[in-house]
């Protein structure tokens, strides 16, 4: 147990594994927080009734902190972002429910684009290296983050995974988040864009059931469209719900398994990659 915060995460909760090298980085005590000293950017105002003497006080003091709880994650995310910009790496954060086909989408994308683009992958799951092992079959460099009990990736995990992955300059970095349509929404990883994936075997009202994820996404991929004849999923209804949450969202309908619709997604990736190298943001 962590002695400072008392949480029940064991000391080896988060692990990062580079597939193919037999290397295993044990992050030890490192989940969504650390116990680092104060950021130099803070200033706070004391206005207690009692004075402190040489900083030592037995009296109550109220400190107006006004600190964003996500500040630590956001600062480290910006550091990741700066690293990606300097190396002209377009990082995409792929988010979805479990089982929507994120890994299948990545497998086909890498196999089809590996002659044109340099692609590296960070896989996030609570347990196992199954997804990273699948990606490794494509020949792409891949690192697996196992979050233990954690339900999302954070910028610190990605920072450490990127150091281990050491992606080349001018490459595309796909970060497959933990399958979860709720928790990853709040955590900026430093990505250049966020892609939310839903599959037609889910409900078409997902966008308004889980609005935070659609609110923060740049692109929505609707996967498994080869199954549309067998399921009640209404594509137009799903899009209309998603546009209520995020009127600027764009959509591609694909079958990652059989390849339908993938060309448009590839064109989007190539266009965004070129745009990012010139302007440091996607459009």
């Amino acid at each position: 147990m962590c002695s400072t915060c008392g949480c029940n995460q064991p000391a080896d909760a988060v692990t990062i594994t580079r597939i193919g090298e037999g290397l295993h980085l044990d992050l030890g005590h490192n989940h969504a927080h650390s116990h680092a000293p104060f950021s130099a950017h803070h200033h706070h105002h004391h206005h207690g009734e009692e004075h402190t003497h040489n900083g030592h006080s037995h009296h109550a003091v109220t400190i107006e902190l006004e600190q964003d709880i996500l500040q630590k994650n956001n600062l480290l995310a910006q550091r990741n972002r700066g690293y990606f910009e300097a190396k002209r790496i377009l990082a995409l954060n792929l988010v979805s429910s479990p089982g929507s086909g994120k890994t299948a989408l990545l497998e086909r994308t890498i196999n089809d684009l590996k002659q044109d683009l340099s692609i590296a992958v960070i896989e996030g799951d609570q347990q196992t290296t199954h997804d990273a092992d699948r990606i490794a079959q494509t020949g792409a460099p891949v690192v697996q983050i196992n979050t233990g009990k954690g339900c999302h990736l954070d910028s610190d995990m990605v920072h450490k995974a990127v150091r281990k992955l050491d992606p080349p300059n001018d490459s595309l970095l796909m970060i497959e988040n933990v399958g979860n349509l709720v928790c990853p929404a709040l955590f900026d990883l430093g990505e250049g864009g966020r892609v939310v994936i839903i599959s037609v075997t889910e409900g078409d009202d997902k966008p308004i059931k889980y609005p935070d994820m659609f609110f923060s996404a740049n692109l929505c991929i609707i996967n498994k469209i080869d199954l549309l004849p067998y399921v009640p999923f209404d594509v137009e209804k799903a899009k209309s719900y998603a546009l209520q949450v995020n009127p600027q969202l764009r959509f591609f309908e694909v079958s990652a398994l059989h390849g339908q619709g993938m060309d448009k997604w590839y064109d989007w990736l190539k266009t965004q990659f070129a745009h990012f190298r010139d302007y440091q943001h996607i459009h």
Binding site: G6, G55, I69
Partner: peptide
Amino acid sequence: SIVLGIVDIAATTVQKAN
């Protein structure tokens, strides 16, 4: 994670204020 972040902020503030 949010609560752990709050605990972290509180612990740092307590330490800093002695």
